[in-house]
């Protein structure tokens, strides 16, 4: 099984993704007048028979894809019990992506971020790199505050070719700054996909009770009666989600929201499909 992100990539080897450069493969693109130095193997003799002019056939060069998987490892991601834990979900999602992409021949980089870019593994496509990335991904543990925008700015300096950046995060930080950074990436002709990881409690608040909510990152305390405040909270949170989704999709980025209480086996294919990755 494999998949390809929609778009054009500047790969290093031939692969299954369209490249901005022209080359020789099975995918015919157009004709071009013959120039001195062109390989005569690609002269189209049938066209010559009709027009008595030399034309060479151009083919679309297919290349591999460069992907950078960024996992948000801030404290807010360490929420949920068992397999509903957000950081665990993010790690499984990242590992799955890395595995599929490298098996398919694409170059994959990995980064983990909190308030800065903490780990960065440069892109490679070797099987040994796959094992390395899987180990690095498995070792990621939640810590620190969230400032994804700063981390992405740090990552931007490391990407010198068109890359598909896959951000796996709960986006519980300054939303405006993130959106601005994402727009910058897209402006630099990178592809950008956001996988938004959320726990069910974040969507609906926990069941009725008198709670003292403590922010996992700042330690701020808010006393609240969950049943009474659920309505207002849901309204505000839904507004926040819709705002992010609209802004990202309008700016050309891919966006998909994962609920950690759902089946991961169903969610991942659906998320990849919705964000523009097509199955091959």
């Amino acid at each position: 099984m494999g998949f390809a992100r929609k778009g054009v990539f500047e790969g290093t080897v031939s692969g299954r993704h369209p490249s901005p450069y022209r080359g020789y493969s099975l995918e015919f693109l157009s004709f071009r007048p013959y120039c001195q130095g062109d390989d005569i193997r690609y002269l189209d003799w049938k066209v010559y028979g009709r027009s008595e002019r030399f034309y060479v056939r151009q083919f679309e060069q297919e290349t591999n894809m460069r992907v950078c998987v960024v996992v948000d490892k801030s404290n807010s991601m360490d929420y949920g019990k068992g397999f509903q834990n957000k950081i665990l979900w993010a790690k499984v999602l990242a590992s799955t992506l890395i595995y599929i992409l490298i098996k398919r021949g694409d170059s994959v980089a990995f980064a983990s971020a909190s308030d800065r870019l903490e780990i960065y593994e440069p892109p490679a496509r070797a099987i040994s790199h796959l094992f390395k990335l899987l180990k690095v991904t498995a070792d990621v543990s939640a810590s620190g505050k969230t400032d994804i925008a700063s981390a992405l700015e740090g990552l931007g300096g490391k990407l010198n070719r068109r890359t598909a950046v896959v951000l796996i995060s709960d986006l519980l930080t300054e939303t405006d700054r993130i959106l601005k950074t994402v727009k910058n990436f897209i402006h630099q002709k990178h592809n950008f996909v956001v996988f938004h990881i959320l726990h069910r409690d974040e969507l609906n608040l926990p069941p009725a009770g008198n709670f003292l909510f403590v922010d996992k990152e700042t330690g701020e305390k808010i006393p609240i009666i969950a049943a009474k405040s659920a309505g207002a909270y849901k309204r505000d949170f839904r507004k926040f989600l819709l705002g992010i989704e609209n802004t990202l999709t309008n700016s050309g980025a891919g966006y998909y929201r994962f609920d950690t209480s759902a089946d991961i086996g169903l969610q991942i294919p659906m998320g990849l499909h919705r964000t523009g990755f097509s199955y091959l």
Binding site: M77, E202, F213, V214, E217, A232
Partner: peptide, 16 residues
């Protein structure tokens, strides 16, 4: 109150 560690209390402030 039951102490409840939550990812972010940003959206709870107004309701609280």
């Amino acid at each position: 109150s039951v102490v409840f560690y939550f990812p972010s209390v940003r959206f709870l402030k107004k309701a609280a």
